[in-house]
Design a protein around this nucleic acid. Structure first.
Lengths: 348, 348
DNA sequence: CCGGCCGCGTTGAACGTTCCAGCGAACAGC
DNA sequence: GCTGTTCGCTGGAACGTTCAACGCGGCCGG
């Protein structure tokens, strides 16, 4: 029975009241507090038979706890804030949405919800304080966080719980989860070397985010391990346009690389693009790899060989870390580095 | 002064209490209710001088209303639920995120927040009812809504406020905002015809969503208006792979189209891709157009000529429609059709 | 001069939950 | 037998806000 109209049963006084904890208590023949205890799983305060009675009553009355009331009294909102940049106009959007979906799912599993917000341009940090002051969220999840992320610094300074997707400076509390970009990239190189490639190039988006630097590092380290030296000119980071230009130049060379490693699926897709425009068969004439494992790589043709980021694990851990801080007031554990998963596509 | 530690000023009793409406009332020398009235802008219940006193007190105390308490008493959460599909693995993701950003911004402007959620697979509709029953949200915004969207039908049946980005069946309350795809596509055709194109083809993603059908319709209508007939074979809707194949076939023809119109920027980018792989200069040898005006089209090379969806307007109206229902219990206004904006890129 | 109404306020009572202190019974230790 | 402790449970009192109802002076129409 969904919502609905009249209900004579409870028409004695005024308008129909919401079924609350008191109704459940009455139905189960216990006190409010006991119902509350059952609801919150404080198993040391009730016996098994009581739990069953209460559970039955809740079910038959279709009881749902009221978030607002719970929040007011317990000072916990069961909501996690996710900061989304307002302008962000690049191809990483696909990945961001994918991550957000995953985050929402992970939060739902522990009965939490995700509140998405943007900052005001005049004071980008104010909104973080506001949201927690007004009791809209318990904690924050930040993605695209740089090592010296001002948001993280601000939150840490104010003792507001948070967790970042991306590493943080050592003097900040290590509330982060990240993937091992170096290892992931090295695995990609291993695969390419095993495939017999000898001439390599690296293309990535510009910026000094940890992951961008690391993936490039992974590239050179991986090659070094196989005794291959990457010439300076073959490693490039730049804008979308710059990458296209460089890719064209590399591939038009009379001694072109046999494998182009890129810093993300988005860049990889662009390079595939350029290669095909030059009449090359990707996966045959030249190998191209990405990094991420999201939709972009899967939808490209040919599909990209890539290091998949375990998005589900990442978000799960981020949520867990937030909750730990909310409950314990801190999270003693160090940052968490997760491995990527090598996914072989048709581009190599 | 941000948060902070000790504050001797109020150390008389227990721990430091949150600054609430009563503190403001005391500081301003008025009653709780008056502060509340000022806060909620019920201007018929207070005079201008009182308003100023209260405002000054709020400012000096740094008062922020507590969302939880407000929600509990007023039965309004000031939160809007946005449903995001859990699996969605296509290139429209970029647009979805763009739209979400815009929605968040529009909501923020009327002091509302956006709660993102996904459905459970066993009962996709349950979560909608849950969220409103537990007082987590006041209303829902649905995007990617089909004409006969089951979510919209469910919400309408249960009297839950909502607004859709996308048209709805006539027997449903017309809580929707949409763009005029037909007109937008016709404008694109007009431009192409003015540029001297004579042989056209249409490529779009498959599916029977209103917008997909409409954009295709706009294509044929637009051509008809100029006395051009589009042969059956030149109009195609299919999967990503299918589109690539068809594009290759079209462009490899000995009498290829001079302009390829596509149903979205994502498809447009793919087609640009294919054309370049065949050695064609997009914008010179062949014109290609998109539809959306998001990042994909802007980041592609050359940039796509496209019909831009006024995302900001759309989300603004969606939020407005939600609020109207929450406040009035309904929204008498009919669906809203917004025009697109023709954006000329380098692909034509 | 009276009744009604309007402008501007006020106070008590919710809203639905969890916190806090306590309480009886059972069960132990000495 | 007395004290202490744990288990399971209870009722009163918040949490910070808005709702509902009412007060009171002044103004207006009759």
């Amino acid at each position: 029975m969904r919502a609905g109209g009249e209900d004579p049963e409870n028409g004695s006084k005024r308008r129909r009241r919401r079924v609350g904890i008191v109704d459940v208590a009455a139905a189960a023949g216990v006190s409010r507090q006991t119902v509350s205890n059952v609801l919150n799983g404080r198993s040391e305060y009730y016996s098994e038979p009581t739990r069953e009675k209460v559970a039955a009553a809740m079910l038959s009355l279709g009881y749902q706890p009221d978030r607002a009331a719970q929040s007011l009294r317990s000072r916990r909102t069961r909501q996690i804030g996710y900061h989304i940049f307002g302008e962000q106009l690049d191809l990483a959007q696909g990945f961001t949405l994918h991550f957000l979906q995953s985050l929402v799912k992970s939060a739902a599993e522990v009965d939490h919800q995700v509140l998405v917000f943007t900052h005001r341009h005049d004071d980008p940090l104010a909104v973080f304080e506001d949201l927690v002051a007004r009791h809209a969220v318990d904690a924050f999840v930040l993605s695209e966080s740089g090592v010296d992320d001002p948001r993280a610094r601000f939150l840490a300074d104010n003792g507001i719980p948070f967790a970042c997707f991306g590493r943080l400076a050592p003097d900040l509390p290590q509330h982060w989860v990240d993937v091992d970009n170096v290892a992931g990239m090295r695995a990609v190189i291993d695969l390419l070397v095993a495939d017999g490639h000898v001439r390599f190039a690296y293309l990535g988006a510009d910026g000094d985010q940890y992951w961008k630097v690391e993936r490039r590092e992974g590239f050179t380290q991986g090659l070094a391990e196989h005794g291959i030296r990457a010439p300076k000119a073959s490693v490039f980071q730049g804008s979308d346009q710059g990458i296209r230009r460089r890719a064209r130049r590399l591939l038009g060379d009379r001694n072109p690389p046999t494998a182009i490693v890129t810093g993300s699926d988005a860049v990889g897709a662009v390079v595939v693009h350029v290669a095909q425009a030059l009449g090359l068969r990707v996966g045959v004439d030249v190998a191209i790899t990405g990094f991420d494992g999201g939709a972009v790589g899967l939808m490209s043709e040919p599909t990209l060989t890539t290091a998949r980021i375990p998005v589900e694990l990442v978000s799960e851990h981020l949520i867990a870390r937030c909750l730990r801080q909310v409950e314990h007031g801190h999270d003693g554990r160090p940052g968490l580095l997760l491995p990527t998963e090598l996914v072989r596509g048709d581009s190599t």
